[in-house]
Design a protein around this nucleic acid. Structure first.
Length: 537
RNA sequence: GCUCCCUUCGUCUAUCGGUUAGGACGCGAGAUUUUCAUUCUUGAAAGAGGGGUUCGACUCCCCUAGGGAGCGCCA
């Protein structure tokens, strides 16, 4: 099977020989910072991790804000855990977040020959050597070091031994001949100057015994070949950076600028995992977060611009800088994301929301969502709540596409008409749909407990009386209906709530809903009277 | 164990030695209201602990405690 050199054909040909800069609006571009080139280099794990998403965002903002390039490279040198679906998921995530990259996504694996070439070059110039130690030997040495309380670094005896002494039949690895004395300094835009004593850095393997390059070599060679000027990545790579710096030095290559960003933890301060509710950006899409809201939320995790909270893309491009990123890890707070998302939902026009809802529904599988087992303490997911409500109100709709189709049957105009009322009480697109479910509910409605409580004999009598009036209301609009109901309430001395609540229950099956008069208008006279009749009969 | 990093309201953060330590989310109270929301007003809420340096420290230095990352022929 042919291994593609890159994962996707885009407008440009290979980034490695593309020289023109990307298109960025002049108004949002700062003075070019000596041709910035950054890259996002995820390994194909199957989804775009939320922390990776922020790293990508930081890179993207830095590149676009400086009129530079934002490149993509897939770190797929480990063939065992690589597959095309995993890569596609990451690209999908980036596209959904609206982070566009320049050129094609480069496959690191496809560049193995080049990596080997450099390894041989290093061998030739005495910057690397063959090591004939077996994995078992190395492990034993490390165990001993650990037992004796020494640093767990492995000092290969082959560093100074001649190849002629090599045991027969053993395929050697190639190790970097790292300096033993002095220290290696990493000048980092986030972490500051961090120095590592060279005695604590062992000779890392750059070529496996099977001849394949390792990550640390590949990264350096690729970053160098791609002309990367700024490496923005997670702090988990900081120690690697010291070793990678030694490779740059061995090759006499220019060391790029570094910015190691802190990690994102779950609400409890622990590493983000499945039990926190969501790891991949696809989960956030499923829950109905808007890309712009997620971006705004993520950029504020570890970075700030004074007291600014809600920032436009243009402002971010203008303001974002790696020097302003904090060093400490932060915790993911769904409540704040919800607030931002609600804000952006209210800012988005109704037609676009309808479109976005359609996009979201196309991806939802209700059975899967309802089966989603997350930690009880994890925040409730809006998409799961939606799936549950669908099961209650419209059990015939098995998945998102079915709901989408049903909504289309009812008419986009109805959803659109309800949108102003819906959007100010929703934090997510999923909540928007949950609120709109009365449109597609199967009748006769199954009232939930709270709604059922609102329907007693008195309420039924009221509904009967109201139904009679509704038969003849001249204009079926929210305003006219409200006037009519208010008139009725005044005439009978009833509080408006005494009429509105039973009406709400009869029309939506719920004690909470968008304003009843809006519900009436959107449902239409026939459907409204039918639902009221279902209750009183 | 070794190396490196971090520590301001519950959470995200502002503060470039001098502030009543500010903002946002969340939480409490109130107003608006047909439910729920939205919106508005308002309240409570923080410099981990201990030493220095300084006229003055959240801010600089040291120690302690707590937390995190790394220590692979993974990336």
């Amino acid at each position: 099977m042919r291994q593609a050199a890159c994962y996707e054909q885009r407008r440009h040909s290979s980034i490695l020989n593309t020289t023109e800069g990307p298109m960025t609006e002049a108004s949002t571009t700062r003075a070019p910072k000596s041709d910035v080139v950054v890259r996002f280099a995820p390994s194909p794990t199957g989804y775009l991790h939320i922390g990776g998403a922020r790293t990508a965002l930081f890179n993207w903002l830095y590149a676009r804000g400086h009129g530079g390039k934002f490149l993509l490279r897939i770190e797929d040198t480990d063939r065992e855990r690589n597959n095309d679906d995993a890569v596609a998921a990451i690209l999908d995530g980036l596209r959904w977040l609206e982070l566009d990259w320049d050129g094609d996504a480069v496959s690191q694996f496809a560049r193995a020959d080049r990596h080997r070439e450099i390894a041989n070059d290093m061998l030739a110039r005495g910057a690397a050597y063959h090591c004939y130690c077996s994995p078992a030997e190395i492990e034993a040495a490390r165990d001993l070091a650990k037992a004796e309380g020494r640093p767990q670094i492995f000092l290969s005896p082959w560093r100074d031994r001649d190849r002629s002494e090599a045991p027969a039949g053993v395929k050697p690895t190639v190790r970097l001949k790292a300096p033993r004395d002095g220290e290696t300094r990493v000048a980092d835009h986030v972490q500051g100057d961090v120095t590592f004593p060279n005695k604590d850095l062992d000779d890392l393997i750059i070529l496996r015994s099977d001849g394949n390059p390792t990550y640390n070599l590949a990264v350096v060679v690729d970053d160098h070949d791609m002309g990367v000027t700024h490496v923005i990545r997670g702090v988990d790579h900081l120690t690697n950076t010291a070793r990678q710096t030694q490779i740059y030095q061995a090759m006499a290559w220019t060391v790029p600028a570094f910015a190691h960003v802190p990690l994102i933890h779950g609400a409890d301060g622990a590493k983000l995992s499945k039990r926190h509710g969501a790891q991949g950006v696809e989960d956030y899409r499923s829950m109905g977060y808007l890309p712009i809201a997620l971006r705004n939320y993520l950029v504020r995790l570890g970075w700030s611009h004074g007291d600014d909270e809600i920032m436009s893309n243009d402002q971010l491009l203008q303001w974002f800088d790696i020097d302003d990123i904090n060093k400490s890890a932060s915790r993911f707070d769904f409540k704040k994301l919800d607030d931002l998302n609600g804000h952006y939902i209210r800012l988005t026009n109704d037609a676009e929301l309808v479109t976005r809802i359609g996009d979201m529904l196309a991806h939802l599988n209700f059975a899967e969502l309802r089966a989603l087992a997350v930690d009880a303490k994890a925040p409730a997911r809006a998409d799961v709540a939606l799936a549950n409500e669908v099961a209650n109100l419209a059990p015939g709709l098995r998945d998102g596409p079915a709901l989408k189709a049903r909504l289309a049957d009812v008419g986009d105009d109805k959803l659109l008409a309800a949108m102003p009322a819906l959007k100010e009480r929703a934090k997510t697109l999923a909540e928007l749909v949950t609120g709109a479910l009365f449109l597609v509910a199967e009748t006769p409605l199954r009232l939930d407990d709270k709604a059922a409580k609102l329907i007693d004999d008195e309420a039924k009598a009221t509904l009967d009386a109201i139904a009679v009036r509704f038969e003849t209301v001249a204009e079926w609009t929210a305003a006219a209906l409200e006037t009519d109901v208010r008139t009725y309430a005044e005439q009978t001395g009833a509080k408006l709530g005494k009429v509105a609540q039973p009406l709400r229950a009869a029309l939506t099956g719920r004690a909470v809903s968008p304003p009843v008069f809006t519900v009436l208008e959107v449902l239409g006279r026939a459907e409204s009277l039918k639902r009221i009749g279902d209750i009183t009969r």
